[in-house]
Design a protein around this nucleic acid. Sequence first.
DNA 1: AATGAATGAGCCTTCATTCAT
DNA 2: AATGAATGAAGGCTCATTCAT
Lengths: 196, 196, 196, 196
Amino acid sequence: MKKNKPKYNQIIDAAVEIIAENGYHSSQVSKIAKKAGVADGTIYLYFKNKEDILVSLFQQKMGSFIEKIEAETTQKQTADEKLLALIKTHFQQLTANHHLAIVTQLELRQSKPDLRLKINEVLKRYLVVIDQILNEGIKDKSFRGDINIRLVRQMIFGTLDEAVTNWVMKDQHYDLVDQAEEVHDLIVRGLTNRNN
Amino acid sequence: MKKNKPKYNQIIDAAVEIIAENGYHSSQVSKIAKKAGVADGTIYLYFKNKEDILVSLFQQKMGSFIEKIEAETTQKQTADEKLLALIKTHFQQLTANHHLAIVTQLELRQSKPDLRLKINEVLKRYLVVIDQILNEGIKDKSFRGDINIRLVRQMIFGTLDEAVTNWVMKDQHYDLVDQAEEVHDLIVRGLTNRNN
Amino acid sequence: MKKNKPKYNQIIDAAVEIIAENGYHSSQVSKIAKKAGVADGTIYLYFKNKEDILVSLFQQKMGSFIEKIEAETTQKQTADEKLLALIKTHFQQLTANHHLAIVTQLELRQSKPDLRLKINEVLKRYLVVIDQILNEGIKDKSFRGDINIRLVRQMIFGTLDEAVTNWVMKDQHYDLVDQAEEVHDLIVRGLTNRNN
Amino acid sequence: MKKNKPKYNQIIDAAVEIIAENGYHSSQVSKIAKKAGVADGTIYLYFKNKEDILVSLFQQKMGSFIEKIEAETTQKQTADEKLLALIKTHFQQLTANHHLAIVTQLELRQSKPDLRLKINEVLKRYLVVIDQILNEGIKDKSFRGDINIRLVRQMIFGTLDEAVTNWVMKDQHYDLVDQAEEVHDLIVRGLTNRNN
DNA sequence: AATGAATGAGCCTTCATTCAT
DNA sequence: AATGAATGAAGGCTCATTCAT
C-alpha cells in the first residue's frame, strides 16, 4: 500500500505546497523533489509522471476530504442539518489547509481529457453524498419534490466552490466558516421575500 | 483602435479555437498563427507575448459578453425578470460559442497571479450587473431585505459557472439554455418545501 | 554622391549614437531608423544591409578623422612635431566625439573576415601617415635608423588605441588630450637617435 | 572545484575553438555542445547562459595565462629582464594557442557593460604585474623616476595587444615570439634613465 | 531503493529584410 | 523616394524523464 511509504506522502505534501504557490505549470518536478527532500529520480519511483503527481494528490487529499464530510453528515438526523454539516465541513477543511484549497480551486481545472476524467472520478463520490442528502430531504418532504437533483447539486457545489475561490483569491483574509450558516440558509430558502 | 485591425481579431479568434481544442499549454504560438493565416512574428505585432493573447482574448470576448447581458437585462422591468434574462443570456452566449465556453471555463482558471488579476478586473463588471439586480430586487421587496449581497452574488455566479462547466465537460451533449428557467427558479425560491 | 543625401548622414549619425550606447549586436535596425527619423525600410535605400551601416559609418567617420590628422601633421616641419600633432589630433577628435570613440575602440573589433577587411582598408591610410612620419624622422636622423617601422607603427597605434580605450572605459572622466605630450615623450625617447 | 569537472573543461575548450573559428555571435550553443561531446542542455548545468561561457572561458584561460607570466617574471632578477620575460611569455602563450588568441584579441572586445566589467576584473591582475615590474625598475634606477606608471602600463599593454592583434589578423603567418626582443628594446629605450 | 547528472525534444521570441502601397 | 506592416528563419533555454552507479 503506497500510503505507508513515507516518501510517497512527503512528495504529495511537497507537491501541494509547491503547486499552490507556483501553479501546476510552474511547478517543476525538481522543485517538488527538493521540497520533499528526495532526488528528482525518486519521484519516478512513486509516480508514473508529473501528471500522476497531480492526480494522486487529488485522489489522496480529496479522498479523505470527502470521507470526513461523509462522517460528519451521517451523524446528523435531518437533510437540512446534514446539508449544513456538509457546508461547514467543506469550509473547515479548506480553511485548515489553504494550500490544498488553492490547488483544488484553481489548479485542478485542467482541460486535458484524461486528467479531467480521473478528477471527475474522485469528485463523483462527493456528488453522491450531496445527492443522498437531497433525496432524503425530498423523501421527508423538507425539500420540494419537484427539484431537479442534478441542477441542485450543481447549485450547491458551484456555490461552495465559488465561495472558496473568492476566499482564496482574497488571500484568506476573512473567516470562511463564518459564512456557512448564511450560505446554507440561502440555498435552502432562496431569494424570495416570503412577505409577498 | 485595435478592434479595426483585422489581424488582431483573426488572431484572437484563431486562439479561441486552438486553445479550446488543445488547451493553453499545448497551443503553440505557431499553431495559432497558422490558424489565423499570419506569420508567427505577426502575432508579436499585436500581442506582447503568448499570455497576452489569453488576456486580450478574455477582455475582448468577455467585454462583449457582459455588454450583451447588460443590454438584455436593462430591457426587463422587474429584478426577477432581469435575473432570468441574465441567466438565459449567459447560457445562450456560451452555447452559441462553445469554443469560448471551453476557454473560459477551463483554460482561464490559471493561477498565475498577474493573469488572475486581469481576469478578475474584467469579471468585476459582471458582478456589478448582478449586484444592481439584487439591489433593485431588495428595494422593490421582491427579494428578502436581509440577504448578504456578496454571498448571493457568489451563489449566482457559482451556480451559473458550475452549470456551464458541467455542460462543457459533458461535451455539450444537452441544451444548456433549457436549464435557465429551472436554475432561476432554484435561486429565487430555494429548496424549501413551502408546504411545511 | 551619397554624402549629399541628408538621410544618409542622418542614418550614419544615428547609428554612431545607438551603437555607442548599445553595442552593435544590440543595435536593431529599427532602433537606428527611429533615432534617424526615417522608416525601417528607408535604411535599405541607402545601405545594403546592417553590416554595411557599420562599414559605411567607419569609412565616413574615420575618413575625415584621418584627413584631419593628415592636415594637422602636414603643417608641422619636423617628424617629432608631426608625431606630436598626430597624437594630439587623435585624442582631440575622439574627445570631441566620444560616441565615435566608443564605436571605433570597441565595436569595430569584429571578427567577421569581410568586415575586418574593409575596416583595415580604411585604417591602412592611417598607418601610411604614421609610416611617412617615421621615414621622415629616419631620413633627417631625428629617429634611429635601425628601427623596425612596422613594429614602431604597432607601438604607436597600440599605445594610442589603448589610451583611448582606457579613457572610454573610465567613462571619459579625465582629459585625454592632456596626456598627449607625455605619450609623445614616451614614444619619442625610445626612438631618439643618441647621436643627435 | 570546477576544474575537476571534466565536462566543464570540455565545454570551455570546445567554446574556444568554435568561437575562434566562427565568432561569438555565429557560435550556436548547440555547435559548442556538439564539439564538446555533450547534449545542449548539459551546457546549462555548468554555465548560466551563453555569455557566461565567454566570461568563464576568459577567466579560466586568462587566469593561467597570467599565472604563467607571474611565474616566469619572478624568476628573473632585474626589472629589465622581467619585462623581457613578460613580453616573451605573453607572445609564447598566444602563439601556442592561437584559437585563444583569436578569442581574446577579437571576440572579447564586446561592449556589453557587464561583460566588460568581468573582463577588466581579470585583466587587472595583469596590470598589477606590469606595475610591479615598473616600480622595481624605478627603485633600482634602471627606469626613469619621472615616468607616469599608468601611461607606461598603457603603452606596454597597448603595444603587446596591437602586436598580437596584427599577428592574428595576418593569420599568424609569421613568428610572433621573434618580435619580443625588438619590442622590448623599443619600450625600454624609452624608459631608460639616461643617467645610468 | 535512491541518486542526480545527463539528455534532447520542443517552443517562444527576436529582428534583419522585403514589398505592396 | 519613402513607408512600415508583415515575414519566417533561427537559436537560446527549459525541464520532464532516464539510467548508470
